[in-house]
Design a protein around this nucleic acid. Structure first.
Lengths: 188, 188
DNA sequence: TGGCATTAGTTTCATTTGAAACTAATCTGC
DNA sequence: GCAGATTAGTTTCAAATGAAACTAATGCCA
């Protein structure tokens, strides 16, 4: 039987049971498999695939809208678009109403690739969910929604840090802040 | 009411509802928050933190054992160790029995940092789990375990790809295989 | 004993990444 | 109109990353 922890017992942290760590390992594995699949069969990175996915599903839109929908930053989107354009999987049409915008749309070839990938992607998802019962899936859905909400809230709450930024040429930055603040990419 | 899908209806893929994508976004957010926390307060990256976490919890071990426990590749571990050693948070003692091995252990300073972080990390986890009921947490545990199992199985099943590798100097590699096979880092 | 495969750990190198800077077009207030 | 602020998208640059090569010590077995 389990004894009561002594009043002074330090709480334990075992990495293998720590939720953020577990999520990270799990997600990276899944993303890795998917990335390999897309790369090997379609010469497609995950940012490229995500871009195609939203264009394929929702039709033409600007790079910014792609960034919002995929939650990728605009740099990644910009590069994904450049590569897709090079491979002739999407077209960029300057917006006549707003000279800054560029409207993106899949080429017929891009759409063909998209339509070939969709069932594969859904198949991966189905295989992942296969061992779960319907009830478990429903609960997973709810749990994910809550965690997303919670993470988004905390996320928003910590954005202040970047507010007062010194200009680039501005000489010194502490060695701490110099070490990349960059963070959670997961090429996924 | 919902109509039956027509026999020819293509299954739909909406990125925002696609499990691998959702996991990725969620995980990156969480990892990002944590990384910011560790970096700002302790000048510690996630690979460094993971290394300290296993050394702090399980005591001295070799770099390889750290890699196994943290599921990081040995390159990452090697670099994390180098940085931690530079910052005097861990010590490397050559193993007298096996000249290849180096036994790592936290310095007193490293341990102090470790003990300061543990409650913070557990706090982050607790905040994440706060909106979930006990029943939901239990089910989350089960679901995670199943997904991990499933992902690990598929993972193992797809390792063959790297088997016959051409030597480095070996002239050409296809543009496909040249484009990094690298994948799911998520600096997490 | 000696040679060849293996293991621990590091280094090299090509690539990805994102914050910050940058360019160019549009909006805003006056 | 028109100056300054904002927005769309790209480029620059300093890391981080990991596959493959490398170095060095062991294991194995003949």
């Amino acid at each position: 039987m389990k004894l009561m922890p002594s009043p002074t017992a330090a709480p334990e942290l075992v990495l293998e049971r720590f939720l953020p760590y577990r999520l990270s390992v799990l997600t990276n594995r899944i993303s890795g498999q998917i990335a390999r699949l897309y790369e090997r069969r379609f010469d497609l990175t995950i940012p490229e695939w995500r871009t195609m996915a939203v264009l394929g599903r929702f039709g033409p839109m600007s790079a910014n809208e792609v960034a919002e929908r995929t939650r990728m930053d605009k740099v990644r989107v910009s590069r994904a678009i450049a590569r897709l354009a090079r491979k002739k999987r999407l077209m960029r049409r300057p917006d006549s109403d707003d000279g800054r915008r560029v409207v993106l749309s899949l080429t017929p070839e891009g759409r063909a690739v998209f339509e070939e990938i969709v069932p594969l992607a859904l198949g991966v998802e189905a295989r992942l969910l296969a061992p779960l019962s319907a009830a478990e899936r429903a609960l997973l859905e709810r749990i994910l929604a809550r965690l997303e909400e919670c993470a988004a809230a905390n996320f928003a709450g910590s954005e202040d840090a970047a507010s007062q930024r010194p200009p680039r040429g501005g000489a010194q930055r502490s060695s701490v802040s110099r070490r990349r603040a960059g963070i959670g990419s997961s090429r996924t």
